[in-house]
Design a protein around this nucleic acid. Structure first.
Lengths: 235, 235
DNA sequence: CCGTTACTGCGTACGACGTACCCAGTGGAG
DNA sequence: CTCCACTGGGTACGTCGTACGCAGTAACGG
């Protein structure tokens, strides 16, 4: 059953010593610092001073807890005052907010969302962002355009996270990464079998931008696309 | 170290009894039938008649094996004859191929790609697809447009997979899913707090399309966007 | 031709993990 | 006050990935 339909605690009995929110917060703290795989049930329980099995009084399973963590993260997305009337500004703010949130909690890239579970914060964000284009397009087109935006943001930030992680691990500065290529990229170039890949490495300018600019460049291309779709509709 | 740089086997010694390809194939077979989590090292070894630890003679770790599996899946994508001159047809063929492949191997949605590891099949597909728009745009724009396309395909198919999985598990036909909503969606509608969500459920026509049509609808919106970007460039 | 050596596949073992189960204690409802 | 539904927590089980060490084998140096 969906975690959001299961009440936190029954009515009767003694006062609970902990809470879902507290457990979720602790788990996020651990995952931020040491990765999601470090947020084991035992570790989380230790963090809040509980016994390992006590967590199961609040949460049916670890997967459900991760669902709670994911929605709690959506709570960090600020959609107050959306829509403002300037759809491009609204969607830029949303995309930047999502990126910043993902970078604060990079482990979110590793969670496999089993089904859209529609937590309250997720729904709040949907209300805010779908409003941005609501005046210009149908619900169906709106959904499609938001799917494009979300797909871009998710893919771009996922790559950024893994690259940053790799750079941190190998001790190489982010700027040197593509230049030095890493042995595998050099091997690919040396093989001579992949001319398009070689041109990407050699010609693509966006690879030399810093990460903020790189994200903004791609985001602007996405918003250009959305803008083109809007003007094609309205005349 | 990257799995693609590590040679399969050294030169000396007795003839190996197995091979990376054989192990990868067995692992994919198990994952297709029972999910990725069923493809444990012991299970894979049993499948090919080997001892559990023998696999480590061929593959450094389970994560690397999953990398091999992922690239092997990209080998199912047909990009022969690309680019054909009709970019829209080319990208449609690519997107349909990716979707079909993902649906054949739904467990791929659960893998966390730690870094783009640039396997040979992955590179082959990049060569084919980047060629489609190469005549019309710069490398940088090409990369951005392909990121948009890939983001859409990945997101759409991921949702499709999880929804199908849920439908199968609950025994409810896919067509009834949105109509019956599931208790959680009904709960959200009843709360009255999410008018945009209610309008999506009530008004969106694409939710009543079958899955193929739904994917095609979204894909056409993406390709419209790409087309708009192309004409904005060329005149 | 024959050690020598570098590999082979494999069995055992370890330290995690998620969580089923059981327990004594507790505090609100009747 | 009595009852009992609930509490937090300890123990235990089955599973995982994989470190390690073994005896057997095939190619190479002489």
């Amino acid at each position: 059953m969906n975690i959001w339909m299961r009440p936190e605690r029954p009515a009767r009995g003694p006062r609970p010593a902990y809470s879902r929110a507290q457990i979720t917060e602790a788990a996020i703290r651990i995952a931020d610092a040491e990765g999601l795989e470090a947020a084991t049930m035992r570790r989380i329980a230790t963090e809040i001073g509980a016994g390992a099995m006590s967590l199961y009084r609040y949460v049916p399973s670890r997967d459900d807890l991760i669902e709670l963590m994911a929605d709690r993260l959506m709570g960090e997305i600020d959609v107050d005052g959306l829509p403002s009337g300037d759809w491009r500004a609204d969607l830029t703010r949303y995309a930047d907010g999502m990126r910043a949130m993902w970078l604060r909690h990079p482990w979110i890239a590793t969670v496999h969302r089993s089904l859209p579970s529609f937590g309250p914060h997720q729904l709040r964000v949907i209300e805010g962002t779908m409003g941005a284009l609501d005046a210009y397009v149908s619900i169906d087109e709106n959904l499609s355009l938001m799917a494009i935006l979300n797909g871009y943001v998710e893919g771009a930030v996922r790559e950024e996270i893994t690259r940053a992680e790799e750079a941190r691990r190998s001790g190489v500065s982010e700027a040197e990464w593509m230049a030095r290529s890493g042995p595998r990229i050099q091997q690919i170039l040396d093989s001579g079998q992949y001319p398009m890949f070689a041109r990407i490495v050699g010609e693509a300018r966006q690879l030399h931008l810093d990460r903020d600019e790189q994200f903004r460049y791609g985001l602007d291309r996405v918003l250009d696309c959305i803008g083109a779709a809007l003007t094609a509709r309205s005349g």
